[in-house]
Structure formats: structure tokens, C-alpha cells
Design a protein around this nucleic acid. Structure first.
Lengths: 161, 161
DNA sequence: TAAATTCCGACCGCTTTTCTCGGGTATGAC
DNA sequence: GTCATACCCGAGAAAAGCGGTCGGAATTTA
């Protein structure tokens, strides 16, 4: 799970979309103006969000973007994962932790980063767009009954090397 | 709290130091070789760690670095804070959240990032060097009786702008 | 057809991050 | 005192990522 401004922009835009759309498509140009993000950059982000199945698009005049799921079914972690498509966290051999164990202390930290990634993902997947729109993001935001609840694998975080 | 490779290198080096020193100074050159980090880069990191009061240095032959405190009194969060000296999280006006509230959805996300920063800090301050060395970093790593337990303010995270 | 809007790929300047280099300076061993 | 060992320091090169631009193509409504 990588944390960058790109992910934050995506979340900002999705919050905007969730709060201004009432079932109607919202044009990117409108979001761009309100959130002060360049249109072309937003287009890149929404291309990824669309590929990630988080939004649907409607082309032509009157078109725009729609949430693919209800705002209380869209997790913040999904948004960030969609735009930031993260990479490996350690520079151990991808897959087999071979060069990892040779040096004793070298990857003692491995478990640490992995667990930290889990913690971050745990929190961000406990918050939905609806939570943010209604300003309910503090503390344990309450476990949600998500569309599918199996997103708890190993989550890499932050760029490596 | 910013998460970068710099912070990870610092933690790796500190883990190495904690696990190889038995009260004796450890030379940076040794750590550099074991952890495959360039000596000059390590020197920069340890300069910050020293300024942060996490390590002590011994100059001259036979010199090196020592932990300033016991390894179970050194929190991972302190290490990262020392080397990464973080900055503001959002691009709201520093101090007054004025330009923040003008746009409705603009900074709805503000609370979210702040709380995420708190979560990260909470986890990393619950893990000590000793925990990592003994490979005990999973789950709730057990609250420690730190030297001082007042490090729970607003923690900015990740580069802004 | 004309306008609105998403879609797409390439490219670019800037900042930050990561890392290197070339020297200093203290200290212990001999 | 000299010398090797190690910390100390600042300037700057190299690389990467970010935020953005541009020009166009496809699709749909009117």
C-alpha cells in the first residue's frame, strides 16, 4: 500500500463524486474545477479507477462518471489500491525470500513492514466513502459489511529500492 | 509520519546495531557491509539518529555507534521520525484551516489522513527494536512502558503539495 | 453535423529522494 | 608523534516520481 498525493487526489475526487452525484453522471471537468486538479490528470486517475471497477463512465454530452457501487460499499483502500498500484516493499527476491535469510538481521524488518502494511490496509478498508462524506472517520470507524470481505492478503507498501 | 526507504534503511541499520552490539561500539562500515547500504549514506542517517538522541558515537579506532537506550526502550516510530523529519500532510493553509472549508469536499479528506497518520504512528510506537530483533512484531505487539508516553499529538504524514 | 464528453498515449519540467565524493576531525595504539 | 581508524560534514550528481500538458480519437446527444 503506497501512500502518495496521487492516492489522496483520487480519494478527494471520489468523495466529490459521491457527494455531488445523485444518480446522475458527473463530468470530470466539474470535479476538476471544484477540487483544483487538472482535468488531464484527473482523466488518468479515473482511467485507473474505471479499470479497477470503482466507477462507471457515460460518454457523450451529459455524460460523466458514476460510482459503480453505493458510497457505503466503496472502501478507501480500494481507491488507493486502484490508482497507486503498489510494488514490493522490501528488496528481497520477489517470491522466494532467499537472499532474505542469508543475512541474519537483513530482513528481520521484513515482518515489520508487512505487518505495518496490514495495519494501514486494515484501517483504510474500515472506512468507506460514505464515512468520509459524513465526516465519520475517527476512531474505529465501525466494521462494514462490504461487498466481499476477503481483501486481507499480504499488502505491499511504499516504493522500494 | 512519512514512510520511505530512508526510514526503512534506518530501521534496518538500527536492528543490525541492536543485534550485533553487546555493549561494544559497532562501526558503520560493518553495518554498511552487512546491510548492503553505502557507508556515506549510512553516515547521514546516523548523524540524524545521533541528533535525535537515539545513538551515541565513539570516535577513533575501536569506535562506532551504540544505542543510547536499551533496545526495548527504542521505538520504531522514533527512528523514522528522527531520519525523515516529516512535513505537512494536506495543502491547506498551514495553521488555520481556512482555505480548507471553502470547498465543501475539498478537505473532507483532511480528517481521514490525519487519523491514518495517527494509526500508523500508534502501531510503530508500539513496536520496539527488541520486538523486531526477537521477531515479535505481529498483532498488537503489546503496549510498552516507554521512557515517556506522551507522543500522541497530531502526526503529519507523507509529502504534501 | 456539431458539441460535449470520455478515452488514450506520449512527453516534459520540477521537486524530492537517494546516493556519491572529497575532504575534515577526534582518538587510540604503537 | 605518527598513523590508522573511525566518525563528521557539506556540496552536488543521479535517479525517480509527481503533477501536468498536448493533441488527438472515439462515442454519444441534440
Amino acid at each position: 500500500m503506497k501512500l502518495s498525493t496521487k492516492g489522496r487526489y483520487a480519494v478527494m475526487a471520489m468523495v466529490d463524486l459521491a457527494s455531488t452525484s445523485n444518480g446522475n453522471p458527473v463530468a470530470l471537468a466539474d470535479i476538476a474545477e471544484r477540487q483544483e486538479i487538472s482535468l488531464s490528470y484527473l482523466e488518468q486517475l479515473f482511467a485507473k479507477l474505471r479499470r479497477g471497477g470503482l466507477v462507471r463512465s457515460v460518454r457523450g454530452p451529459g455524460g460523466g462518471y458514476l460510482l459503480a457501487h453505493a458510497s457505503d460499499q466503496t472502501r478507501i483502500s480500494d481507491i488507493i489500491l486502484a490508482v497507486d498500484e503498489p510494488i514490493r516493499a522490501t528488496r528481497c527476491a520477489p517470491g522466494s525470500p532467499v537472499g532474505c535469510r542469508v543475512n541474519k538481521a537483513r530482513c528481520l524488518t521484513h515482518d515489520l513492514w508487512e505487518e505495518l502494511g496490514n495495519q494501514i490496509h486494515l484501517y483504510l478498508s474500515s472506512v468507506t466513502l460514505a464515512n468520509v462524506v459524513s465526516r465519520r472517520v475517527l476512531g474505529t470507524a465501525g466494521v462494514i459489511d462490504g461487498p466481499e470481505a476477503e481483501t486481507a492478503e499480504a499488502i505491499p507498501m511504499v516504493a522500494a529500492q
